[in-house]
Design a protein around this nucleic acid. Structure first.
Lengths: 344, 344
DNA sequence: ATGAAAGCGCTAACAG
DNA sequence: CTGTTAGCGCTTTCAT
């Protein structure tokens, strides 16, 4: 049997409530008793039963992360791990535990979230990305549970979210290529139902428009956030009669696929084609050639999301800060885009 | 106020205990009442309060993963994410939740684990890797808490663990190079205090010994599980007068560093040097050239660890299975080791 | 097959 | 400043 508050109370010659008060640093407690009780807790190896505390206080000091099933394929694991690290680090600093959950499909995801939130096992949730018509967001929003979306919700505009300014980021990436002298620039996108794909496409288009450059539908290819997708996009684009001299690519992982394909076809980067992509995962720097990439501060995204959620929980749902937080991005220029006057 | 067991009981015209019995599929309950109660639960949107249940049942149906702080630097994030995916998937299938925790240092790690286990928030723990004299293992072992180590413990041999047969795996990798005609083979290792480094070094040495090949201390370089480490190791090895024609590398990430370095020095892989490494992360296949790698089934390691832990928890600590589980590995041969007669 | 009652370990009024 | 009391929502004997 584990040692309880009663055991401590008995041994210290005080009442259980006193011990409880010591535990929560109640102001009206004599320094003396506090000290004595703490000593005895130490001595007995007392650890408060979190479940019991949570039962009466109606707060769990924990949050959950929903790992969307399809995401496993959509995004690189690197991306998620970095996000999770950020979340866990800040949550732990705030004294919160982090629970990770996933479902085999959307229905299971909602069930898992419902069980966790309705069952009062966690106080709030972080969604690792937003898709259109997401039933999980629907559920959380409807039941008024605290939650934060990494990305943005198209369906509701009052949800807390942490995001990159993807339109601007993509504008910057494209602008960089334009500055380097490129006039025919293509875009390799992700799944069109993700807001991130849409936003990045838009930034690209804005940049071209501002520079009065030609825009061609055939220079825009949609795919997934995986390497194969890049490979296929590359084959298509490079077979065009009047092909781009540079590409803006929605994700580093996709760039790797492109790089591999170009290599096989004996195209050189940056000599024949220049590349800029997004997310700046560790590997971007290490590939040959190193890939220019927009660093979106993935860790920071996670860290901030956790912070926002926990503040919201602690303020009891009163939003005393911005609903939507933007994490700054930064273009990391590397060899893949270092050729200012491309061959044709 | 959330709907409780009482609300359901009242509406169904039964006692709370009956509702509880329905919830846990108690055998002696009439199909009729069971059905009616379930209907009302559905209707009211009832979800059992997990904390309350846990408080009385003294079981939490959840486990925790300890993310060791230094690991963030030691291993690639890819590795961990894959492990976590395996753990979370199987745990969820068994009806368990997974809590993730980390500490800034060893002391904090132990505190976190103590709080979680002693505070009865989780039933057991999974350690993502084992180092020598680990205070967390010490704590768990001493207090007789259920836990599983991914890797192996040198300090105790009765701890549950899931591991790769790293000696054999490394033997296989080395043997492969020998079969391809190499006679001078080097080894780029990880931190010497990790069992995985030691085991892989041993397998390499065994293979050389069995083939009567020369072993030179200068062909063995220690480092970390990061790219830079590979870069440095490469510079050293390639500057040797009588340098190896092939390398066994402790981790794919390190191989990337080596690859980058070789590229800068204008060495070609596999023409000048052949490479085989470990872990077979997604990127191994995508680099140029693709890297031969030992697939150790990371996801499977996580999945099995979770299974082992949960079985142990459910059997109340009685070990009715092997203490140490080995996940099979598989050599994936790719271009980086495809040259059978190396130049000298 | 079901109900009544006790209690898991803790917190939170309400008294003093 | 501290003790007493009454639950939080659930499970579990012990009756019936």
């Amino acid at each position: 049997m584990a040692v309880t508050i009663k055991d401590v109370a008995k041994k210290a010659g005080v009442s259980p409530s006193t011990v409880s008060r010591v535990l929560s640093n109640h102001p009206r407690i004599s320094a003396q008793t506090s000290h004595k009780v703490k000593e005895i807790m130490e001595q007995l190896g007392y650890h408060p039963n979190i479940m019991a505390k949570s039962l009466v206080s109606k707060t769990t000091e924990s949050i959950c992360i929903i790992l969307p099933k399809p995401a496993e394929e959509l995004f690189s694991n690197l991306f998620f791990m970095e996000l999770i690290r950020g979340i866990v680090t800040q949550a732990n600093r705030s004294g919160f535990d982090v629970l990770i959950s996933s479902g085999a499909n959307e229905k299971e995801e909602v069930e898992a979230v419902a069980r966790l939130l309705k069952g009062r096992r966690v106080d709030g949730a972080i969604l690792l990305y937003s898709r259109k018509d997401d039933p999980v967001i629907e559920f959380l929003h409807q039941n008024d549970y605290p939650f934060v979306v990494i990305g943005r919700s198209e369906d509701y505009d009052d949800v807390l979210s942490v995001d990159t300014d993807n339109v601007q980021a993509s504008y910057d990436a494209t602008k960089h290529l334009i500055t380097m002298g490129h006039e025919r620039i293509g875009f390799v996108s992700g799944p069109p139902n993700l807001t991130v794909s849409q936003d990045r496409l838009k930034g690209y288009q804005n940049a071209l428009a501002d520079a009065n450059l030609e825009m061609r539908q055939e220079w825009i290819v949609e795919g997934e956030f995986v390497q194969d997708s890049g490979y296929r996009a590359m084959s298509f684009i490079m077979s065009l009669p009047n092909r781009p001299t540079a590409l803006v690519v929605v994700d580093d992982m996709v760039s790797f696929g492109i790089l591999r394909g170009l290599h096989e076809l004996n195209f050189k980067v940056p000599d024949d084609v220049c590349l800029v992509s997004f997310n700046n995962i560790t590997m971007a720097e290490l590939s040959s050639p190193p890939i220019s990439s927009i660093d979106i501060g993935i860790y920071q995204l996670g860290y901030t999301a956790s912070q926002l959620l926990i503040q919201n929980i602690q303020n009891n749902g009163d939003t005393i800060y911005q609903t939507r937080q933007i994490i700054p991005h930064r273009l990391m220029i590397r060899e893949s885009s270092m050729l200012s006057l491309p061959k044709r």
